[in-house]
Amino acid sequence: MELFTLSDVHYEIMREIGNIGCGHAVSALSKMLNKKVGMKVPQVKLLEFGNVAGFVGGPENTIISIFIGISGEINGMILFLTEQPSARVLVNMVFGTPKNTELSFSEMELSAIQEIGNIMCSSYLSSFASLISKSISQSVPDMSIDMAGAILSVPAIEFGKIAEHVLFIESVFSTETDNVSGYFVLVPDLPSFKKIMSALGVD
């Protein structure tokens, strides 16, 4: 299966994976914050290496990212991305410090952000695993606050071994009132991509 020969059915299935995964992650967040959280229709993107950071505000935009490696029957990675102002709002909700607008974070706050990311990614992955009835184990999360281009080069490098493009399933969520938004980027490697498709009955 080549990346360029993907059919509409493939795209539809990937969108649905993004939809279900992000839906579960968002409901976990919503329970955590006791707030309504909405999400957009997920997008499946086939991007050139140079354009991977376009959707998070350009390559030099600083973003916060939580990374979890996926292994087992499916290999790849999932990234949770958010910008500093959104992370600040999340931290304020968790710690009950609504007036803080600092864009730098203490150790404790960073740890909270990482845990929120971890919980959301875990919900995403467990719903994904039960959707395709495969067992997935996830690595411990790691966090990086850096330029978007460099962070998204991590999945790009993984795809670089096999292709000239990167395949992302991108899901965006946001709260209604507080301007919190974030992205999930699920990146299965190519053999896993085939397994996912056949598990869902598509060649």
Binding site: F67, G69, I70, S71, N75, G76, M77, S139, V140, D142, S144, D146, A150, I151, S153, V154, I157, E158, D189
Partner: peptide, 15 residues
């Protein structure tokens, strides 16, 4: 040549 994420095994490790 940085390691953006610590990942004990798997795709992103030590590239």
């Amino acid at each position: 040549g940085a390691q953006m994420f610590f990942s004990p095994a798997g795709p992103a490790s030590r590239i």
